[in-house]
Nucleic acid binder design. Structure first.
Lengths: 317, 317
DNA sequence: GAGCGGAGCGCTCATATGAGCAAAGGTCCG
DNA sequence: CGGACCTTTGCTCATATGAGCGCTCCGCTC
């Protein structure tokens, strides 16, 4: 079997990483110089023949995390390396972050969606005690997704020996008058008041496309979303569509939307934003750049996007 | 989130391997000395948090290969690193070894079994031209396995634009007279003569337990095998049971066995022995230590066993 | 409370490796 | 066939890292 250059590289890598020989020793064994051995090893690493990975359930990119905080004025950032199950890892990290928070948030305002459901699943029973979980965006209907929304709040609350307060309202009303009437109802008003006074918030964002849970739930049509995108929408936060600079895209739609306002999120002491996946890069950037969160829990690719994008960022300062 | 010692190790590993920072730089960032960083990295590698693997379809452990040759007087050794499909990799390596042999063996004697079937599958069409493939151990019957045996020889031959010569005989006869009569038959005698004159041999070994293809094929019962084990059998080579020192365990059984004799293997210029898996460690050792092969193609764990076992080895000298 | 043993630490000095440069070799084009 | 350009190589010197040692700290036992 002839010694192809590629096999030379493989052998050098085996002697170095498996047998712990020095580059000098390898050079003698293979009949080449130690400088060529060094180059072969670099080539092996760069080509993927040698794979070095850090495998740990809770690995975080500390340097990237600090850069994110500095760039966007965040109080904390958690970045999860890419893996076979990045969304699961990000949800797990968010669950752990929540469990480790001190002081424990007495009232936790949460949104609903797939990411929040994942976080609820990853939370350990007894992550805290006596936490009241409040829904901060509407969405109660007979749709399967919204029963998941209720389950998310209930699960998080139960695992903290607390209770859940659901927002018994549609996410978006067709008539402004109807929305005002619902907000005026004492039951709904009380929940909104609690939502506004939460100690901390935990939420994700939706993509401005047909996969949106607002479309799925029947509140918007795909035409509605296309129109919003045409007006510059990059995604929604607690049911409210925002542009790349964090501003509200359609004030009329926003006014008919029930739930916590974006200004309340901006004013919060602790707003934990959980986001992962390439589809959400644009909305992730819009959220962190416009001061809608104080903490971001994300994946490595999103973090990289946030650090390299040229869009100017005000963030929290 | 508190900095557990374990997370410190993970962070150090990320900065070193992912971000390519020096141990000095990492020490400054984490508030520890560069010596402690070094220890954390060693700990990370040893504990498996950092995983360095050489992934390449044809990676071979060159050092281990040389040690095997020196220890057992082999002319060549091919060692395949552990992977998710070690048996497949070993079979692939054996196929490549065969294809690369120079001069091309005009007559190739082969045994039959799962390993040989795998090798036949891995061989590329056109690996050689004009090769006659001869079966060196009996086993033609209506049993499904023996039709696989024929297919193995035919496949290898067809892929070399050659033809197969099957050994039209049971592997083991119940009566010595019957065995002699079959060997006297011109058809069988001619095949045995060709088998004895082959340029090279390719074979594997069977484990001395109920998984043996000889039991599967009905030649032996599990009681027979248990008795052979009691007499010191570690496995079979071309249907012949051997002890740890390579000697024949039951001369009477051996005499009733049709096919190439072990002495012919010992005398061969090229005898390629393909073996993988922990179950075959004992028989692998018996084969290489008693000069039954000139080349071994095996997996890393078996190679390690062969190098570390304390059993004395004569091998080929 | 004291003493002993083991583990972990920081350090010095030696070794291993990398960066950058100059030279050599190879390929392509006129 | 020769020149120009690009790639690869070996080397020097600087930097990074490891080995081994002495010291300190911690935990356990008497």
């Amino acid at each position: 079997m002839s010694d192809a250059p590629e096999m030379l590289m493989v052998r050098a890598a085996q002697l170095y990483y498996d047998d712990s020989k020095t580059q000098d020793e390898i050079g003698s064994l293979l009949g080449i110089t130690r400088w060529k051995v060094g180059r072969l090893l670099i080539q092996a690493r760069e080509s993927g023949v040698v794979r070095i990975e850090i495998v740990h359930p809770r690995a975080r990119r500390v340097g990237v995390e600090r850069q994110l905080c500095e760039r966007y004025g965040l109080s904390d950032a958690v970045v999860i390396p890419a893996s076979d199950d990045t969304p699961g890892r990000v949800a797990g990290a968010a669950a752990e972050y929540l469990a480790a928070m001190r002081p424990v948030p007495r009232t936790l305002g949460i949104s609903w969606g797939r990411t929040l459901s994942d976080i609820a699943d990853h939370l350990s029973a007894g992550w805290a005690t006596g936490v009241t979980v409040v829904q901060i965006n509407g969405g109660v209907s007979l749709n399967k997704r919204t029963s998941t929304a209720a389950a998310t709040a209930v699960t998080i609350a139960h695992k903290a020996d607390g209770h859940a307060i659901l927002l018994p309202s549609p996410a978006i009303l067709e008539q402004l008058e109807t929305k005002r009437a619902i907000e005026g109802d004492r039951t709904v008003a009380t929940v909104l008041e609690l939502a506004g006074a939460a100690s901390a918030y935990l939420y994700s964002a939706g993509v401005a496309d047909e996969s949106s849970v607002l479309v799925d739930s029947g509140y918007l049509t795909t035409d509605d979303v296309a129109r919003l995108v045409a007006h510059g929408a990059v995604g929604d936060v607690v049911g409210r569509y925002i542009a790349a600079d964090g501003s509200t895209v359609d004030p009329q739609l926003d006014e008919r939307t029930v739930g916590l306002g974006l200004d309340a999120l901006r004013a919060a002491d602790t707003a934990i934003f959980v986001v992962a996946g390439e589809a959400k890069h644009a909305v992730a950037q819009a959220v962190v750049a416009s001061g809608l969160c104080t903490v971001v829990v994300t994946d490595e690719a999103t973090a990289e996007y946030l650090l390299t994008t040229t869009a100017p960022a005000e963030g929290r300062r």
